[in-house]
Amino acid sequence: MKKIWHKIPEQVKRLSVLLIVIVAVFIVANSLLTPKDFGLVGHYRAGSIQENADRELKYAGQEACADCHDDLWKLKNANYHKNLSCEVCHGPSINHTNDPDQFKPEIPRDRTFCVVCHEYNTSRPTGYPQIVSEAHNPRKICVTCHNPHNPTPPQAPKECSACHAEISSVKSVSSHMDIPCTKCHVTTEKHRLHPREFRPTKPVDREFCGQCHSQSAKADKFIPRINMVTHEPRYVCWQCHYPHLPEAQ
């Protein structure tokens, strides 16, 4: 035995001692530091399940709202927003369900809120209702026309300006202000319900403008006249004159 011990080179003996110390320290540290409940149910502390379950609740879930707001609950669940939970819009409201008088949920009436989900965005699936908010009735908040709990679009507006706000406002200060939209665009009722499928007509030729602006036109005298033959005959008029603001150069 002693002989073998002497045969081992000195370095190896010393390193082995060091190795044994390191391994021992690791084993001791491992058994002391590993939480007792680690690995009982998976690669984590079993106790962390309880810790997470004990965390303060913030959301009540939409079934909770049905107890007191059953009318709104039914309304919402029968309409387009049926898949949204109440607290998506009203914020975490568990305090409110416990004490409705003390705590009031948020009510997001701002235009900036609905567009979080409805702003036009190429990544959203086709068919998902989207709007370009800058062009979609920019001066009014959404809930004036859409009931958030039943957002089905309201009755189609009579005025073209409800949807073509920019064109109407430009035209209303132009020299064409007295000409109704429908004088130049034959618009069916259906356009207001399904605007993309039923498009109004647009003027197609120079003669259309000539009704009022040609020298032979029977229109009011004060309307400026041009010579239809010599006035830029190779182009249609709206290549140079914006019809909704014709005085613009």
Binding site: P9, E10, Q11
Partner: peptide, 18 residues
């Protein structure tokens, strides 16, 4: 040096090999 003392020819050779 882990209090090592051995610097004999043999030990140095062992070092080199390792």
């Amino acid at each position: 040096s882990l209090f090592s003392k051995d610097i004999s020819e043999k030990a140095i050779h062992f070092d080199k090999k390792w």
